[in-house]
Amino acid sequence: MRTLTLDLLRHGETKAQGIYQGVTDVPLSVTGQKQMERAVSRSIGWQKVLYSPLQRCAQSAIKVAAQYGLSCAEVAWLQEYDFGDWDGRTLSEVYSEQPERVDAFWRDPAHNTPPGGESIKALQQRVLSGRDGLLNDSDDHLLLVTHGGVIRTLIADCLKIDPARWSHIRLDHAHFTRLRFYCDQTQIWPELVTCNVAQLPSQAL
C-alpha cells in the first residue's frame, strides 16, 4: 500500500483586503511575506513544492524550494476559484449591487455561480483531477502552496461535506492543512490529519 501526504499551505495576507480575490493576481503584503517565512521556517521532509500560478503563492513557494534545495513546479489546478464578474471588486460594492445573488451564492454555491464565474462542479473537477494525478506519482510527501477554495475542496471531498457548508471551514493565512491518502490498486482511503495549524510536526505523523 502506498501512502501520500499532502501539506496544504494557504498563502499569506495580500495587499488587497475586502475584495473577491479569486484569480485577481495580488501580491503578498509585508505582513504576508513574514507570515509565510514563519510557516516554512523549517523543512519537515517535503520532496517537492507545487504551487498556484498566482503570485501570492508562487512568491513564497519558489523561495522555500530554493531554501531547502527542493524541486518546484507551477500547477494550474492549484489556482483559486474564479469569481467571474465579481473578481477583484470589493465585497461591499458587489453586495450593494446584487444582494440577493450574493446571498444565494454563499447560501448554496453549488447552484448559484457568480456571473461569469467558475461553477463549483468545475472547481471540484479540476482540483480532484489534479489530486488524483498526484496519487499516481512516486513522491509521498509534498508541499502545496495554494488558496482557501482549493483547500476547502480537498477537505470537503475527504469528509464528504456539502458545498453549502464549505464556508464553515476556517482557513487562516499561512496556515497548514495535512491530508493523507492510503492507496492500493483498487481503493483510496483519505484522512484529514490536521486542519488550519500554524506549524506542522517535524515528521509526517
Rank of each mutant, 00 (worst) to 15 (best):
T153F: 06
V64A: 04
A110M: 14
L159Y: 09
P114Q: 08
D162V: 06
T90C: 12
Q21L: 14
C72Y: 11
T177W: 02
T3E: 12
L54N: 02
D172L: 13
E100M: 07
Q125G: 03
L123R: 06
T153K: 05
F105K: 02
T186R: 10
A104M: 07
E74K: 11
P201D: 14
A174T: 11
T90M: 11
V127N: 01
C72N: 08
A66E: 12
G133K: 08
V127K: 02
Y95H: 12
A122Q: 13
A39W: 02
F83R: 07
H168S: 15
V40Y: 05
G116E: 04
R178E: 00
C72P: 00
W46I: 09
E100D: 14
D132Q: 15
C57R: 00
V30T: 15
D162T: 06
K160I: 00
G148E: 06
A61P: 05
R152W: 03
W189D: 01
L179P: 05
T5P: 01
Q124W: 03
G149A: 07
T153V: 09
G149N: 04
A66T: 04
L78T: 05
H173T: 13
M36C: 11
R152C: 09
T146P: 02
E118P: 07
D85W: 08
G18R: 12
Y95G: 04
L91G: 04
I19Q: 01
S167I: 10
W166D: 05
G148Q: 01
R2E: 03
S29M: 07
F105N: 01
G12Q: 05
W46V: 05
H168Y: 14
E80M: 08
L179S: 04
L134C: 05
I62M: 11
N136A: 12
C183P: 01
I44C: 11
K34V: 15
G116N: 09
D172E: 15
I161D: 03
I169L: 15
E97F: 05
Q124V: 03
Q124Y: 12
D162E: 12
A204F: 01
Q59A: 08
Q199N: 13
C195G: 02
P53Q: 10
S52M: 08
L91A: 04
K15I: 15
P99W: 10
R42Y: 15
V49W: 00
Q47I: 08
A58K: 05
A61T: 05
D139H: 09
H147W: 03
D140Q: 11
V75A: 07
P201W: 09
A156M: 05
F105C: 02
I155D: 01
Q187L: 15
E118L: 04
P27N: 05
F105L: 04
P27V: 11
R101M: 11
A122T: 14
I169D: 08
A16F: 07
D172H: 13
P27F: 10
L28H: 07
I120E: 00
Q199C: 09
D137W: 00
K63D: 14
T146M: 03
R152A: 06
L142F: 11
R180T: 13
R178W: 03
A198L: 12
S60Q: 06
G18I: 13
G69R: 00
R131D: 00
